[in-house]
Amino acid sequence: MEDFKTVAASQTTLTELMIPAYSNFGGKIHGGIIMGLMDKVAYACAAKHAGAYCVTASVDTIDFLAPVEVGELVSLMASVNYVGKTSLVIGIKVISENVTTQHVKHTNTSYLTMVAMDEHRNTLPVPGLILQTDEEVRRFYQAYHRKELKKYYKTEEKRMKSVYEIAESEELLKNERCIIQRKS
């Protein structure tokens, strides 16, 4: 294993034609199809960087910004944005292109955390990352902050479960779209 690799060394693009079998009843491409392609390109990018088998540990929020139509080419561009000891955060930008009109739209961006594994399913250390551009530094910095926010949210989730107050929660929920009807 090399000690450090550049971002460019493992950047990966996957392009696929969206066929009718991928569509939902509304004629748009299923979000699950896009999510599956994201997982595939994240694996390829992470495995190239790690030089090892990688598994998906988590997926950050996936916000679909624009629908994908049957007949469009979808391209998923993946790069390593951050590395820890055994994990990598892969940033993925998804665009779709109407090949007839050449109209290109950004459909979503997401971040997948991948973990390098050996043949016995033990975690493996991954190479560090050589950051060569301001953009790469920004992405690494933002990924670091997302990681810290995840830690904070996990801690807050545990705290909320341990100090749950019925009266306080009912007060907060009274302006929400719910009705509390307890069964006796």
Rank of each mutant, 00 (worst) to 15 (best):
E69M: 10
Y22W: 07
E97D: 00
A50P: 06
Q11I: 04
L129P: 02
H106R: 08
R146Q: 06
I95R: 13
S184W: 15
E16R: 12
V74F: 12
L14S: 04
K147E: 08
V55Y: 12
I180N: 09
R138S: 10
V126Y: 01
E168F: 01
E97Y: 06
G84I: 02
R121G: 02
K28G: 10
Q132M: 06
T15W: 03
V59Y: 01
F140V: 00
R177S: 14
E136R: 03
G36Y: 08
V89I: 13
N122G: 02
L173K: 06
K154G: 09
S79F: 08
K174P: 05
K158C: 03
T86M: 04
K40C: 05
E2Y: 00
I62A: 11
A47D: 09
V55W: 09
K48H: 15
K161C: 13
S58N: 07
A8K: 15
E16T: 14
Y144T: 13
E148M: 09
V115Q: 02
A78Y: 04
E135D: 11
L76P: 03
V55K: 04
R121S: 14
P127E: 05
T113P: 03
P67A: 01
E119F: 03
N122C: 10
V89P: 01
G26S: 08
Q102H: 14
A78W: 05
L37P: 02
S10Y: 07
G26W: 09
L112G: 07
S75V: 00
A116R: 06
V7G: 09
A78E: 06
L173T: 05
Y144C: 04
E72D: 10
